[in-house]
Amino acid sequence: MDNQNSQDQFGQNSANLSAKLTSKINYLDELKTSLKNKDDLKIYQLINPSKFSEAFNEEENQYDDNLFKLANDLTPELSHYLSDKLIDYLGEKYPFFYYHEYELGKFSIYFGNWWNHYLFGSLDAVNVKFDFDEQEYEKLSKSFKYEKEGQRINDPLIKQIANENEKLEELMDGQKERDEQKRKLQAALKENAEKNPMPWDAGKVKEEKKQLDDQLVEIERIDEKASQAPSLIKENESKILKLSKDETILGFERQSIKVTFGTFEDFVDQNNKLYESYLFSLKNGSKVNKGE
């Protein structure tokens, strides 16, 4: 009896195992066939079955989510393959993004084709998802907020540096006047030194010399600052240029989004449902193709 039972158990186990193996083989087989048929929609379903059924409001999930583990190590190749149609689609929907495959199946996103465009993140072709660079994305989002208030992010800083430069220039312009002052002070000091005061006036003369010395030191301190002004001004100019460049790029980015989506919020919405939109378009596209 026992023997019989355990044999049954073994049999059951083998049958289970066999069924599981079959389902794995089938899975890989289906993946292979879909690839052969260039059925990207099916491939997306096989990669992430539950996300797929959620997108299409399907109640039942045909495939086990874990099965993709079998092909997980092929992600770079799959990503490379899937990017072909996906980037075509994105080219239409997001005409301002440019992609660069820096390594098999890995894509960086550049915002715009303007000079010095920014690296804006990466494209996850397998999950149909943008992974934006947080810093750049935040900056852009903030820049939209500022725009609503009629402001630009870098303006306060640009203004501050410009003011600084104005002061530095004033400092340089004042050189002639300071030289004249110095000349007068030195003359006064000379006069002071030549004085031969009565003992009761000695303190006064000494006090006068100290005041003159202090004034001279103060002017020399300003001279010293003025002598550094040209290089500081140059440094500041390059800071302003950098900030203006950044602001110009943000302007182009905002403009691109407004032209394509209307508002930043609509852009965000579209990003959030990118997976669904793309898969729907694949579905509709394949229908159209079959209908032909």
């Binding site: 303007w114 000079w115 010095n116 240029l241 203006s244 460049k245 110009t248 302007g251 182009f252």
Partner: peptide, 10 residues
């Protein structure tokens, strides 16, 4: 070149 970029945009 950055300068040309900014000036052109302006």
């Amino acid at each position: 070149m950055d300068e040309l970029f900014v000036k052109a945009a302006e």
